[in-house]
């Protein structure tokens, strides 16, 4: 028994498992960012370049309430709620007037929003990084003196990500709202002819996506990571690459793409070098675009990018 536990200890603290845990912790963030991008792409065929900035903004709005002495979970809820409403506001005010216009228009608008939000954020909250506490310990576990790359916070992160992914899956696949959301995205005119209030569904899609993105930003910035206005820029790029690898119209592909990308990147970092790790997502993207340009899990044959 003791021998078994000891071998479990050495297994969990092995180099491979350590890289896997690090990679998963990174991968679920990529997966959430990718999921957020895919939901918006599916519903409105807009690539949300301001995704990271919107999520960071919502995180600032929520988590700076800690300064007023509010409970962590209340601030967490405020951030998500703000992200949810902000997503709807953006679709309604900035994106809706652009439907039927050239596809470059929403891209330009979203890049503009990205710059605007980062500028406003710096004005309100300064450009320096601020730290706020995490609700769980981020110290890695020790098993008989060996380090295991897991902490209470990382477990919470995994748990939260799984809950969100499963909820999104259930919402889209098994509920009436999900049926309406998918119909509005796939065939807006037919959906209207069947009485679906398509505009509301598109707004709701943006709201859900923005809330998911906000959760990703909170995971990134809580505790040791720190919060600043540019913090999600790199994660947006990786999340976008994950979505492109999985297929921009496939939520399942986005999640798998994100997790595989995170894990691969960390193995490359550990077994090769940090510089090679930075190149990994780009190389992966290039290879996928050459072999299967619509993405690995996409069902559609044409891509409108």
């Amino acid at each position: 028994m003791i021998a078994l536990l000891a071998s479990l200890d050495s297994f969990l603290s092995s180099r491979i498992m350590t890289d896997l845990f690090y990679g998963l912790a990174l991968g679920v963030i990529y997966a959430l960012v990718a999921l957020s991008l895919v939901i918006i792409w599916q519903s409105t065929h807009v690539l949300n370049f301001a995704q990271g900035a919107m999520a960071t903004f919502a995180t600032f709005v929520g988590m700076t309430q800690l300064d007023r002495g509010l409970n962590w979970w209340v601030c967490f809820a405020i951030a998500i709620l703000f992200g949810f409403l902000f997503g709807g506001f953006t679709e309604r005010v900035l994106i809706r007037p652009l439907y039927g216009k050239p596809e470059i228009n929403p891209i330009v608008v979203m890049v503009g929003l990205l710059g605007l939000l980062e500028a406003i954020g710096q004005t309100f909250w300064s450009s320096s990084t601020r730290n706020y506490p995490a609700p769980f310990s981020q110290d890695y576990w020790q098993l008989h003196g060996r380090l295991v790359a897991l902490s209470a916070w990382v477990i919470f992160e995994f748990f939260l990500a799984v809950v969100i992914m499963v909820s999104i899956l259930i919402l889209f696949q098994f509920t009436n709202i999900g049926l309406r959301l998918r119909a509005a995205a796939l065939a807006p005119e037919v959906a209207r002819l069947l009485g679906v209030r398509v505009n509301r569904m598109l707004t709701l899609g943006w709201m859900i996506a923005s809330a998911v993105g906000t959760i990703a930003a909170i995971i990134v910035t809580a505790g040791t990571g720190g919060l600043n206005v540019n913090v999600m820029d790199a994660f947006f790029v990786s999340g976008f690459i994950a979505a492109a690898i999985g297929g921009l119209d496939s939520p399942v592909g986005a999640v798998i793409g994100g997790i595989v990308l995170g894990v691969t990147t960390d193995f490359v970092r550990d077994y090769w070098s940090g510089n090679a790790a930075q190149l990994t997502p780009l190389v992966a993207l290039l290879v996928v675009l050459m072999i299967r340009p619509e993405g690995l899990f996409s069902k559609s044959t044409t891509r409108r990018v």
């Binding site: 049926l179 998918r182 119909a183 065939a187 037919v190 002819l193 069947l194 679906v196 069902k299």
Partner: peptide, 29 residues
Amino acid sequence: ARLGVGHVPEGRGVIAEFTVEENLRLGAL
């Protein structure tokens, strides 16, 4: 549509990515 006007468009407009039952559910919603 909600007033009770059913419109079967040219080219039928079934949603190919939906199952038969999902198409019908959408119609009834």
